[in-house]
Design a protein around this nucleic acid. Structure first.
Length: 941
RNA sequence: GCGGACGUGGCGGAACCGGUAGACGCACGAGACUUAAAAUCUUGCGGCCGCAAGGCCGUGCGGGUUCGACUCCCGCCGUCCGCACCA
């Protein structure tokens, strides 16, 4: 007997509003997500980047946490002891801005936001261990950060020095290099000024080499992020070389040191250029008003960036000259130039106009001349006669062609092609493809038995392709006149300079130390007391935390800590004399650099971490967050783990073994006739006849649909998760953000999409309820259903592991369709119930509340959130029969069905007996039959 | 300028290691149920030709390798992202 899913039984609609809080309470009551450190099961640490408590969560958070929750719930079902904590990145400027604008206390404002957002997150039904919740603004958190600071200081990982810093005139604070984007503050957008201040620095550059090389081991990080960090660290190898001044003015070094990655072009040097901030420039400017003016101008233009491309290269001739390090008879003029950066290398460069566009521009402008060092080897195309000769001779005897290479000294594309042809002719390549570079390498690897000569030719081809060939017109001593590799020349130049003691090999990094001092109130106080006699003295560990004062006012701009004399004036811990607290607080990126480690034992009172817990849980197995933190947060955290290792607080050095950067949630924009932005909540969409139109709900006026953009308050294209959860439920919202796009790409939030998700929630509910009571008797319907269930199960497993949630969603739909079909064709209750159970478990990580409700409807015991993951029956995944497409000359002409294990001969016979095949062959007999077992058959006629 | 990613129906996307292009969803069309609507169900849905069977074309463009190319190679075009006077 058959039943129609929708009609024969009245099933109440699934009521998310009622069910969701009920199941959230059930999970809480069972303390399901509280994780114990001593649990013997294998650990799995899944973490999403913790939010800043700005006020309310946004859909971006929903997407981020939904993804993390899928992983957490799945891994839990797979038998892992999962750590999935949540906290608050709670220090930062918005709290102070709110204090100034609304006269609220930053602490109260922050904690109120935390309360709101926590409620919102809880309404999403996330499997979080709230017992480990931390807020970085809590003294119980930042006291340990102060301890780490002191320990780092003790180990020499923190220094204090005067430095030119990026000053944000709007936020009244210093910014790290990483926080200056296009010369503007990352938060305020104000043009950054340069100021000279005494600052605390974390010596991240001490770890530059390790931070760089360890990137290779982070194979579960996106390539993109690794490349960005690699570029940011910016390692370059080269030479530091001294150009001695012909006559040094009093009070300056008698030489200018220059860093170069191209010492092989030293003999192309025509001038020396130093930065406007170079000490030599400063000294000279003391009694040179015109130079002083020039330097001022450079500074003004310096960070303005407006259009560095169009900015003219400007120089100022100091009148000084230097001697060439390799030939004292050469002298070169010294310029102050606006394109030289004091922050990189030594703040001085030598200009080689022949081989650098920028140097050439400068040399032309100031008439400094050009000396050529390299000239490309002359291109000699082989005449057809020569080519034929080569070919012929190779065919006769591969060795002969060597003499041609020696004789003509060139290798060009034709020649390379020639080798491909000839090598195939000799059947040394077999079926292998010949591509330019890889295959040549492969060739060398695979055919190691080839005659040495041949290998030599191939290698020479490769070198040619990589470096070109150059004639060294003005060679460095000890370097051949003719080079195939620039590297060779560079090496020669470095050894020559080292031999003559005018320079030394140098590895230069772009990465600078991390300045952490911030002239702000709402941050972690730096635990230092300044004493006139003793200098900066660390606060004794016993006196921690240095707590922020609570009663502060923001009536005047600037840092209220500086005005709080009661807080500020304290005796020196060393000598007891009157002293002052450090009033700077730490960059908030410090707070987020180790919170994931604190989560492993957040209850500890006396220490930042417990070594056992940290070493057990770290590295985080799966970290998920926005790509905007690719450099700042992720690099700082990597530094922090290393610093904590040095100070004994951790035994690991990489915090995040797996990293995933999810895309944004974007939305259409809407503009009314007056050009004002209209929020989606006020829009009614009409899709009549496939044409999308938007109307205002209130006025009915047509609204223009604009481009899809990142959700922003200014364009009002924002949807509030609370509204979505209120009208559709958390599961619908979670399902939608996981469903439409691959997780690393942006997802477009659409009303239609959300409604589709909501419909599916009801459909699952209906199907599961029908499966629970179906009285079907058609055994034939059972087998395909079981097969479909286990196929979906296997596919979801694979795709969750690879975080391809959009594909998981598709597999679930496919199983739902199969269950629907099976119910309609009368599958038995046992099998329908089993399949429905699998379906429920598959959706459980994504739509946990609905899954519980369904689990109950199926009469299963306990909570699905606590149920072990079902076992795939591999036998069901194997088909008995398989339908193979048959191609004739690469075009599909027929299908044949054969037993799945059939060997080639059987398949071939079946194909050649097939009617459709015979018809398509039109009496021709195939020249060749290609059978790819289990895949395809192709007949060549 | 340097580096990276991407380009597939009306839309989001799928297609494993080179083996039936368009899974799954959204939107849309036709139909059923309904007084009606919603919900639900059935069905169609890359383009062109055809009543149909079927055929031809089709994964940004142009070439190539292969029995066979969205996938590999060469050369273009376009979009997005990151870095950018880095010596």
């Amino acid at each position: 007997m058959t039943s129609t899913p929708s009609h024969d039984r009245a099933i109440e609609r699934y009521n998310a509003k009622d069910a969701e809080p009920r199941w959230q309470q059930a999970w809480d009551a069972a303390r399901l997500f509280e994780t114990r450190n001593d649990d013997p099961r294998p650990k799995y640490y899944v973490l999403e980047m913790f939010p800043y408590p700005s006020g309310r969560i946004h859909v971006g958070h929903v997407r981020n946490y939904a993804m993390g929750d899928v992983v957490a719930r799945y891994k839990r079902a797979r038998g892992f002891n999962v750590l999935h904590p949540m906290g608050w990145d709670a220090f930062g400027l918005p709290a102070e801005n709110a204090a100034m604008e609304r006269k609220v206390n930053p602490r109260e404002w922050t904690y109120a936001n935390i309360a709101t957002m926590k409620k919102q997150l809880q309404s999403m039904g996330l499997s979080l261990d709230w017992s480990r919740e931390i807020a970085t603004c809590d003294p119980d958190y930042y006291r340990h950060q102060q301890r780490l600071f002191l320990d780092f200081l003790d180990k020499g990982l923190v220094t204090r020095r005067t430095a030119k810093v990026n000053w944000d005139p709007v936020d009244h604070t210093v910014l790290a290099n990483e926080q200056v984007i296009d010369g503007r503050g990352w938060r305020s957008g104000a043009l950054v000024e340069q100021r000279e201040l005494t600052q605390w620095f974390f010596r991240i550059s001490d770890f530059a080499e390790d931070l760089l090389s360890a990137l290779d081991g982070l194979d579960r990080w996106p390539e993109k992020v690794r490349v960005m960090q690699k570029n940011w660290i910016g390692r370059s190898e080269g030479l530091e070389v001294r150009f001695s001044l012909t006559s040094a003015p009093a009070g300056v070094d008698d030489a200018v040191t220059v860093f170069t990655t191209r010492p092989d072009t030293l003999f192309g040097a025509r001038f020396l250029a130093i930065a406007a901030d170079h000490p030599l420039a400063a000294t000279l400017a003391a009694d040179r008003p015109d130079l002083q003016i020039f330097i001022e101008e450079c500074r003004r233009l310096g960070t303005a960036q407006a259009a560095i491309d169009t900015a003219e290269k400007l120089g100022f001739d100091t009148g000084l000259t230097v001697r060439h390090p390799l030939d004292a008879s050469w002298t070169l003029p010294v310029y102050v130039a606006n394109f030289v950066l004091m922050e990189y290398g030594t703040g001085a460069v030598f200009g080689c106009p022949a081989h650098d566009q920028r140097d050439l521009d400068f040399a032309i402008k100031y008439d400094l001349g050009v000396t050529e060092v390299y000239r490309p080897a002359p291109a000699q195309d082989p005449t057809p006669e020569i080519f034929e000769k080569l070919k012929e001779s190779f065919e006769k005897n591969p060795h002969v062609s060597l003499s041609y290479i020696d004789k003509y000294g060139y290798l060009n594309e034709d020649y390379i092609d020639f080798f491909r042809i000839t090598s195939r002719a000799f059947e040394i390549g077999g079926n292998e493809k010949y591509t330019t570079d890889n295959s040549l390498t492969k060739e060398i690897e695979e055919f190691g038995q080839l005659k040495e000569d041949f290998i030599r030719i191939l290698q020479k081809v490769k070198e040619h392709e990589r470096d070109g060939e150059f004639l060294y017109t003005n060679p460095i001593p000890g370097c051949p006149r003719y080079v195939t590799s620039i590297k060779e020349a560079i090496e020669a130049a470095i050894s020559e300079c080292e031999n003559r003691k005018v320079g030394k090999r140098k590895i230069q990094f772009r990465l600078r130390d991390w300045g952490v001092s911030r002239q702000r109130y709402w941050g972690c106080p730096i635990p230092i007391i300044h004493c006139d006699a003793c200098g900066p003295v660390p606060v004794p560990v016993a006196d921690l935390p240095v707590k922020l004062p609570d009663d502060v006012s923001f009536d005047v701009p600037g840092n209220p800590l500086e005005r709080d004399h009661a807080w500020r004036n304290v005796p020196c811990p060393r000598c007891g004399a009157a002293a002052r607290r450090e009033t700077d607080t730490m960059d908030t990126f410090v707070d987020s650099s180790w919170y994931y480690a604190r989560f492993t034992a957040p209850w500890l009172q006396d220490a930042p971490t417990d070594r056992g817990a940290v070493d057990h849980w770290l590295a985080v197995d799966q970290y998920i967050g926005g790509v905007e933190h690719a450099i700042l947060h992720l690099l700082y955290s990597r530094f922090f783990m290393r610093a904590m290792r040095e100070t004994g607080w951790s035994g690991v050095s990489e915090p995040f073994a797996g990293l995933f950067t999810q895309g944004m949630v974007v939305h259409e924009t809407y503009k009314d006739a007056a050009g004002a932005w209209v929020p989606p909540a006020e829009i009614r969409l009409d899709n009549e006849g496939g044409t999308r139109r938007a109307f205002h709900v209130g006025t009915g006026a047509e609204i223009a649909i604009g481009p899809i953009e990142k959700m922003s308050k200014s364009k009002k294209n924002v949807v509030d998760p609370d509204d979505i959860i209120a009208s559709y439920g958390a599961d619908t919202a979670r399902w939608f953000v996981l469903s439409d796009s691959p997780p690393e790409r942006d997802v477009i939030w659409t009303e239609e999409g959300v409604q589709g998700a909501a419909r599916f929630v009801q459909r699952i509910w209906r199907l599961v309820n029908l499966a629970a009571v179906t009285d079907g008797q058609t055994r034939a319907a059972d087998a395909p259903l079981r097969k479909a269930a286990h196929k979906a199960l296997a596919s979801v497993e694979e795709d969750v592991e690879r975080l391809r949630f959009n594909r998981c969603v598709a597999h679930v739909y496919t199983l739902a369709n199969a269950l629907d079909e099976a119910l309609r064709t009368g599958a038995t209750r046992t099998i329908a119930g089993e399949a429905a159970g699998i379906l429920v478990q598959l959706i459980a990580p994504m739509m946990p509340h609905l899954a519980e409700e369904c689990w109950q409807a199926l009469g299963r015991d306990g909570l699905v959130a606590d149920a072990p993951w079902p076992q795939v029956e591999r036998a069901l995944l194997v088909e008995d029969e398989i339908t193979l497409p048959v191609q004739i000359n690469g075009r599909k002409r027929a299908d044949v069905t054969v037993p799945s294990g059939a060997d080639k001969a059987v398949v071939e016979a079946a194909v050649l007996a097939d009617e459709a095949v015979l018809r398509a062959l039109e009496g021709r007999s195939p020249k060749k039959v290609i059978v790819v077992p289990g895949r395809i058959v192709n007949l060549v006629v």
